[in-house]
Structures are given as C-alpha cells and as structure tokens.
Design a protein around this nucleic acid. Sequence first.
DNA 1: ATTGCTGCAAAACCTTTGCAAATGT
DNA 2: ACATTTGCAAAGGTTTTGCAGCAAT
Lengths: 170, 170
Amino acid sequence: MKDQSCSHSGLPRHDCAKDDNGQIDVLRRIENAFFDLSRPNTGPRRILVEKLAELAHTGEAFSADDLWQSLRASHGRIGRATVFRAIEQLVESNVLDRVELCDGSHRYRVCGGSHHHHLVCTMCNRVVDFLDCLSDRKFDEIGRRHGFTVKDHKLTVYGTCDRCLKSGGK
Amino acid sequence: MKDQSCSHSGLPRHDCAKDDNGQIDVLRRIENAFFDLSRPNTGPRRILVEKLAELAHTGEAFSADDLWQSLRASHGRIGRATVFRAIEQLVESNVLDRVELCDGSHRYRVCGGSHHHHLVCTMCNRVVDFLDCLSDRKFDEIGRRHGFTVKDHKLTVYGTCDRCLKSGGK
DNA sequence: ATTGCTGCAAAACCTTTGCAAATGT
DNA sequence: ACATTTGCAAAGGTTTTGCAGCAAT
C-alpha cells in the first residue's frame, strides 16, 4: 500500500494573493514549496519551477510522465524519479492538485492554492476550477451523523466541454 | 491510457428496493448484472456472487487483490484475471462503486444502486454512504458557467471515524 | 565537510492481454 | 457442437526504491 498520510492540512501554507499578477506568484509559491522543506536550489528544480509556472499559466493538466517527457525535451537529461519525487512534494505542499479522471487515471495541475474543485471534460480531459460546494457546517453535520470528524473533501464534476461538443461529442 | 469510457449512465439498471430484505436483493442485483450481458452461470461467478453478498452485508471496502485473496482462500483456485474482469463488469453495471482513498489508491464496495457519496476514514479506510449533495440545478449552473454539459459528479469526504479517534488517532 | 538531491537501473505494484483448455448452454 | 469464460503466464504501464556520485550550502 501507499503512503497513508493525507496531510492536506486543508490550508495552503503560503499566502496566495489571487493570481492577478500571473506567473510571478505561482513561481514564488512553487519555489517556497521546494525550499521550505529542503534547501538546495538545484538545476533540476529550477527547470521544474519554470515549467510548472508555464503549466500554471495555461491551466493544463498533465501526467507525471507528460511532465518528464516535456522536461527532458526542453532541457537535457533529468531523471524520471526526480520528477516523481518533486510531484510528491508539491502535492504535499498544495502546489499541485491531483485530479481524478472518470476512467480512474489521474493528472496533476498547478492550483491556485485556495479551496476549489474540478470540472473535468470526459473527452479531452480539460480541467476547470470552480468554487461552489456544500457549506462547512453541512460537512460537519454529515460527519457527525456517522461519527466521523471531517477533515477534507473532494468534489469532481464530469461532463463534456463546449469544444468537444462542437467537434462531435455524443 | 485506460478505457476512456465513462458510462456511469447515472441510473442503476435494476430497481433496488432498499436493503431492508438484506442480502437477497443484493444477491439478485449482482446476478442480474452478470447475467444480463452474458449467459453462463459458472462456478467462479457463483462464488463471486456469494462473496460479494457477504461484503455487501458488512459494507466492507476491498481492493481487487483483497477480493482475489479472499476468494482463493475460501474456495480453491480462481484466476486473478477472472476477478479483475468481474470487477470491471460490476463497476460498469453499477453494482460496485470505486472509492478513491485520500492517498490516491482505491477500493471497491458493493453499493446500493441509487445515487450517493462516500465518507472515508483516512486511518482505517472504512467507508460510509451519505446522500447530501448539491442540487442538480446547481451542477447544471456550474457547467453552464464554464461551457460544460455536466454528466456526473463525485463527492468524497475524508475524515477520521469514531473507532479510530478512540484508538489514538491524532 | 556535510547534507541532501540526482540519475540510473532494478524492483515493485497493479492491471491487462493472449491463448489453450475447461465449462455451461 | 457452440459460444463464452476461465486460468495461467506473460506483458504492460506506472510508480517506487537503492545506491553511487554530485551539487549546494
């Protein structure tokens, strides 16, 4: 079995002024996430930060392998494991979100840091954020009803995006 | 990539009188799911149906491997692939739910057939159902706002169950 | 110097696939 | 007889691990 820790402590570790300033903020958040827990500002990390800032900008969702391929294409050699290890840390630090697709596979995505959920296109896997959700009191109530102390939740909505509808989705 | 189909057509294929009659109903639902699409009432399927009725009763969540181990322990040889193939069909037929744990792994669970969501204990992986959710109009509105046609959604709540809290969970 | 990261290759993990043999109808 | 499922073993895809060497502090 995998790491049972579920340390979405809920709140982002860094203040995230809304993304109005674009990549700068995201860049800083990613750097912070790396350098909070570990010191070295290494080459691989720099190119990772750079690439992730790009991906944050486009909002693209990617698989671990996508990211690896993309990094080794634009820059030279980088280890697969390095990418996996970085993703793990960044998910932990709430810089990346793990998004479940409806087929059970998953992608990652640079997230804004504040609480949100995902709307996923089942045809092209495009992911969009939204804020709507049940209230915290409601979640507490659900928990109370079953003897649970609620810590976190995840809401994912699946559908077809306009682009795919046009290009002949059922 | 995996099978991109997302054929939670949403509605259960068989009427599911609430589980007041216990295992009988569940048993029938599982049998129907198997025998709708394919004929042979084979040995492996019989023991699968039997075991799943048990699991439905206890509400236990299990991995594909758990189920395989358990079947080969109680009955003789059964192929790993047979179990995986059965799970696939039963998920498709809305007899089993796939539940994501907070670490990204997943379990299966015999479900009642009607729309519901899951409350998952992050310590023992116990799973409990609940019904609360946003309204359909709300989901439609979320979709409309982003140009999506909403088909399905999934809400999973993570927390600590009373049993685990008592036995020293943080 | 010390500490921790990196790349590689191997291993682990989980799931799917191909196919001959067995089974149900 | 026929069609389908089964079990096995092999392959597949993805993620993790071990470790020697390297880089940053």
